[in-house]
Design a binder for these strands. Structure first.
Length: 614
DNA sequence: GAGTTTGAAACT
DNA sequence: CAGTTTCAAACTC
């Protein structure tokens, strides 16, 4: 007779029997359903609490050996059990596994499950099992020939009795405990780790079994890895995919698309807001950490050795769709061929050889747009801005003072006195400015302020100085200011910082301008990223009209910013700025500033949104 | 719901 | 250990 021996009808009685029989462990090992339900959240369990389980039951198991221990169920040392402990649920059929399996206490690294999936990582777990994080119903197997006594059976593999399943000739129940235990023994004999988590535990330890993604999530790895051939590891046939983890070096899959950065994988997440947000966050973080410089790629993974690599790789070459994502994957497959494929992502050859635990890392579209040099140059630009702002403020102040003097017909003596005072307030600022300025910049200042005393120089704001400090290395020292200037600047900073209210206002204004320009720069970067993303998308979709050169090199960047570059070169501050590459990316900011920002330092409407945005 | 596909588990 | 078979879930229609 084919029936579900662990049927729901008998659920209560079976559970009661189990609870009674295994009273001692009942608390630690909640019922079966719960076990599975809570599967999904147990990865976060602390290793300590998890490892305690096997040790706890080990004495019992040791005494049982091959014998059947119907009374004291041997729970599988799996993470989900810990979850059960945390949230004890009534009537569950926790099964006892022979202590064999606990001979080597499994380690349950604290892993944040990408997805609430069975720790046991039994693939093919019905989605109905868990919805909105709250398990509704235990997964019901449909075994027909295995009697639910082989790992084919999810329930058995999960270490739980069948309960309400649709299986035939089920022996995975309390009534057939002897047979079940035999099966358990046999299974453990074949594979001592058969009932241990496939995901999360590792012979190398918890730490080795986890990897961190761009967003900081710690993802688990499949201990054995999958061996998928046709599913691309993007279907639930794949254990890794089903567990919502990325394939790892442990996998031996072919044509894997379940790696970070895989477009196919990302596509799957389209429509799934939650997952999409995770991806976006990963991308954002990756952009922050990896967008700058040619090392936009993190470490392209590495790992997997695929039997179908050659074949798979060959398909990539002519398949744009696979380039960006799998290209990265390919980097750890056949690094020798990577360079030729690195066109889209950009220069990543240097990283191709990088070997790391992580498989794939997101590479920002801006990776080849922003170089370390750009940052330095940006800082220089901002420094100049700060100086310009300070100067402008001083000019305005002087102008207003002079106007006031004229109106009041103040005496020459008093005027001089005020002038001296003014120097105290803002004059030092110019000193600082000139310290960091040289060449044309200095000339410009002297020209514009020919009527002013040379000593009427103002210090830069603390924020500007901070930039200066960061810039005090190569670029700046070489092209903007001499080391002596910087030294002087620093000295002046420390000695002249304490200024009056005037200086505070100046600082605030300087910083506001700098921040505003920085914001503009970031906005521009975003725009460039959008443009590039669009182009990449078109390209990936097979839009053959796009010239790849524009994508990878500075093509579109240079053309887009050429005019800006020109205008920049005509700007008043050009000599103070290190040349060119910044002009490609940041010239718009500079140009804009030269055109309208500095002359009107006080423009609340323009700067008012700086705070919120930044 | 039946049939097919898939890949892990089991077997040789 | 590799190849084959069995099995049940996932998937397709």
């Amino acid at each position: 007779m084919e029936k579900s021996e662990g049927g729901e009808s008998s659920d209560a009685s079976v559970s009661a029997a189990v609870a009674t029989a295994a009273q001692q462990v009942a608390v630690d090992f909640p019922a079966k359903k719960l076990a599975r339900q809570l599967d999904f959240t147990v990865f976060g369990q602390s290793p300590a609490s998890v490892t305690a389980v096997p040790e706890q039951i080990q004495p019992i198991a040791m005494t049982s050996g091959p014998q059947i221990v119907p009374v004291k169920l041997t729970p599988l040392p799996r993470p989900q059990l810990q979850q059960q402990q945390a949230q004890p649920q009534p009537q569950q059929h926790m099964l006892l596994m022979p202590m064999k399996q606990t001979a080597a206490p499994p380690t349950y690294p604290s892993i944040r499950p990408p997805k609430p999936e069975s720790p046991r990582a039994r693939p093919r777990q019905s989605a109905s099992e868990v919805k909105d994080g709250t398990p509704k119903k235990q997964k019901q197997c449909n075994c027909k020939h295995s009697r639910c006594l082989k790992l084919y059976c999810e329930c058995f593999a999960s270490g739980i009795y069948c309960d309400g399943c649709n299986c035939n000739n089920c022996h995975n129940n309390v009534e057939n405990e002897p047979a079940r235990r035999e099966a358990v023994d046999a299974t453990l004999e074949r594979n001592p780790h058969a009932f241990r988590p496939k995901i999360a535990s590792s012979p190398h330890g918890a730490r080795d079994n986890t990897e961190e993604t761009g967003d900081g999530l710690v993802l688990a790895k499949h201990n054995k890895g999958c061996h998928c051939k046709k599913s691309g590891c993007l279907k639930k046939y794949c254990e890794c995919f089903q567990a919502n983890i990325l394939c790892s070096e442990n996998c031996k899959c072919m044509d894997c698309k379940n790696f970070e950065g895989s477009e196919e994988r990302q596509a799957l997440f389209h429509g799934d807001h939650a997952n999409n947000m995770v991806y976006l966050q990963q991308a954002a973080n990756a952009a922050i950490t990896g967008a700058i410089g040619s090392s936009g790629y993190g470490s392209p993974p590495v790992n997997k050795k695929r039997k179908g690599q050659e074949l798979f790789f060959g398909s990539i070459i002519n398949d744009p769709v696979h380039r960006q994502g799998q290209l990265q994957q390919g980097s750890h497959m056949k690094s020798s061929v990577l360079p030729s494929l690195s066109s889209i992502p950009g220069p990543c050859v240097g990283n191709a050889a990088t070997v790391g635990p992580s498989k794939f890392t997101y590479r920002s579209l801006l990776a080849d747009l922003i170089q370390p040099q750009d940052l330095k140059e940006l800082c220089s630009v901002l420094v100049v801005y700060s100086g310009e702002a300070a100067k402008m403020l001083a000019d305005e102040k002087d102008a207003s003072q002079k106007q006031a003097e004229g109106q009041t017909e103040a005496s020459l003596a008093s005027s001089s006195q005020e002038r001296v005072q003014n120097q105290k307030d803002s004059g030092t600022e110019k000193d600082m400015l000139d310290c960091c300025s040289s060449g044309d910049q200095g000339e410009k200042i002297s020209t514009e302020e020919s009527s002013l005393d040379v000593s009427k120089r103002r210090p830069m704001s603390p924020g500007t100085l901070a930039l200066m400090c960061d810039e005090s290395d190569t670029m700046f020292a070489a092209s903007v200011a001499s080391p002596n200037d910087l030294a002087t600047l620093n000295c002046n900073t420390s000695s002249q910082l304490p200024h009056g209210q005037g200086m505070t206002e100046t600082y605030a204004e300087q910083e506001r301008i700098v921040l505003t320009k920085f914001r503009d720069c970031l906005n521009r970067l975003i725009t460039l990223g959008d443009i590039k993303e669009t182009k990449c998308s078109k390209m990936v979709r097979g839009a053959d009209s796009i010239d790849q050169k524009d994508m990878i090199g500075n093509g579109f960047t240079t053309t887009e910013t050429r005019n800006q570059h020109d205008s920049f070169n005509n700007g008043v501050s050009k000599s103070a700025l290190p040349q060119p590459r910044t002009t490609q990316l940041f010239s718009a900011v500079v140009t804009t500033a030269n055109n309208n920002a500095l002359p009107k330092v006080h423009r609340p409407d323009e700067n008012r949104d700086v705070k919120p945005k930044i």
